[in-house]
Nucleic acid binder design. Structure first.
Length: 451
RNA sequence: GCGGAGUUGGUGAAGUGGUUAACACUCUGGUUUGUGGCACCAGCAUGCGUGGGUUCGAUUCCCACACUCCGCCCCA
């Protein structure tokens, strides 16, 4: 048997429906914030990620899927979204667009060569958005609150936002020096990984899970203390605007982010879910004012956010978040003989073109198993086509909920369905709650009140 | 890249060096020659992740590999 490659996932059935629903919600929220969808290539020149994401991040140095194409070009499957979007921004001269700043979002697969775990894949899906062309703190606040709001609208609880500021280039450099100066004398007290980090990316020492309780760590200089006056005031504005939007956040000086391109505001979104283990960061982002210029565009400030779609889905599952997913068909058509089958062929097509969700038997089942199939599909109505009835220009339609059967004329069927097929206002999430409860749909609903 | 645990039908799983791989659910058919959901009866893994090896004989023991999961690194 040929199996899927390591670290990939097939998504189908109910999971696919939930997946599509979440995508739809993201689209709708993005529309309200006036972000436009952008689709960029799955592979780009390797150079883009080396220049854009940075040479010290593991994502680029040891986790990319690289290949040389038949023309000898060095290519990389995108490990993250920002670099490609920024490349597109520059290449398509979006800095010249009438509408500024440019607001873009994506929701697509990324590729990282890593050891898989739950919520961590080699083919992972991220959604993210970029606001390019403004350095105003209002953007920072909006980008953060937008992330929070998506999770809120989806009904995910236990979301925590940690923010920090790395300051501008000057502040960031001062801080880096200070960190090295602080840790160098104590290098032997640190773990092996941290020793390496001191050389490569000293900011990440603060993230260490092994050493985090040590005294050296607690007395380490804080980013906030190394911000110059302008950076400090900027950060205060971001916090002020966040409060105005009612966003709860925590200032966490250890949030530094792993990608090299960040400056000023950085933030992480965590899901406080027991089962999540080490994969509890479900999104993160920050400002990257230098990147557009570094990739050959005009000096342009920008800020963005990216979130793991797979982890979000996992969180929604763990938290049992309900979704209004249609899990029923309007009508199931049963037949026995060939004449009836022919009429079923005609009728299924006709009714579908009139907007109804119609299913029929494809396996020449017995009536008994046909009814079972109708039940499995949660059919609202069932019709057993009968030659004698058809000759008399009528048919019997059975309401599967009430078990009542009506005899109607053929011509009246569409009208009958229009009148009697009621959209499920209730959440169709398939949960077992028969009690009224707070549900995803935002209201109190009864998911299966007929039970 | 490092360390650890696991892998038995559609599902949950029990089990053993020896010709029926238990049980339950689901599913299919029948009892009921065109109105089911109950009940009863019957059927449903030539197969125990893949490939080798040991053995008269391997799902069981050994080796390798693949995949899944957990921790680390990193990140989403």
């Amino acid at each position: 048997m040929i199996t899927k490659p390591k670290g990939t996932k097939d998504i189908y059935g109910m999971e696919a429906k939930r997946w599509q629903y979440v995508s739809k919600v993201i689209d709708e929220v993005m529309e309200k914030y006036n972000y436009n969808f952008i689709r960029v290539p799955v592979f780009e020149s390797s150079e883009l990620f080396h220049r854009g994401v940075g040479e010290t991040s593991d994502i680029v140095t040891k986790e990319t899927y690289d290949f040389t194409d038949r023309g000898g070009r060095k290519m990389t499957l995108r490990p993250e979204g920002t670099a490609g979007v920024v490349r597109s921004y520059i290449e398509n001269k979006m800095y010249g667009d009438v509408n500024q700043p440019v607001k873009l979002y994506y929701n697509c697969p990324m590729y990282r060569y890593e050891r898989p775990q739950a919520g961590r894949y080699r083919e992972l899906t991220q959604f993210g958005y970029e606001l390019i062309g403004s350095d105003d703190p209002i953007c920072d606040a909006e980008v953060i609150s937008l992330a929070v709001n998506i999770y809120k609208i989806l009904g995910l609880k236990g979301i925590k936002v940690n923010i920090n500021s790395l300051g501008d280039a000057e502040s960031r450099n001062n801080y880096r020096e200070a960190l090295i100066k602080h840790f160098k004398p104590h290098i032997n007290k640190l773990c092996e990984d941290c020793k390496e980090r001191l050389e490569k990316n000293p900011l990440r020492i603060l993230d260490c899970k092994v050493d985090c309780d040590k005294e050296v760590m607690k007395s380490a200089p804080k980013t906030i203390d190394y911000l110059n006056e302008a950076s400090k005031q900027r950060f205060e504005k971001v916090k002020e605007y966040l409060s105005l939007m009612g966003v709860e956040y925590l200032v966490d000086p250890t949030v530094v982010r792993g990608l090299d391109y960040y400056n000023h505001t950085v933030f992480e979104v965590e899901a406080e879910i027991e089962k999540f283990g080490a994969q509890n960061v479900i999104g993160g982002g920050g400002r990257y004012n230098g990147m557009v210029e570094q990739l050959g565009g005009p000096s342009t400030p920008a800020i963005g956010f990216a979130a793991g779609f797979d982890r979000l889905m996992l969180a929604l599952d763990y938290e049992n978040v309900k979704m209004p997913i249609n899990n029923s068909v309007d009508l199931f058509l049963l037949y026995v003989n060939e004449d009836e089958k022919k009429y079923a062929v005609y009728l299924t097509n006709d009714l579908r073109m009139n907007g109804f969700i119609v299913e029929t038997d494809y396996l020449n089942r017995s009536l008994k198993s046909g009814f079972k199939q109708a039940d499995r599909l949660n059919a609202k109505f069932t019709i057993v086509l009968n030659s004698d009835d058809l000759i008399n220009n009528e048919l019997k339609i059975k309401n599967n909920k009430t078990k009542e059967e009506d005899v109607i004329s053929l011509d009246a069927l569409i009208y009958y369905l229009d009148e009697n097929v009621i959209e499920d206002d209730d959440c169709n999430c398939n949960c077992d709650d028969s009690e009224e409860h707070e549900c995803h749909c935002g209201e109190n609903c009864k998911c299966k009140k007929e039970n």
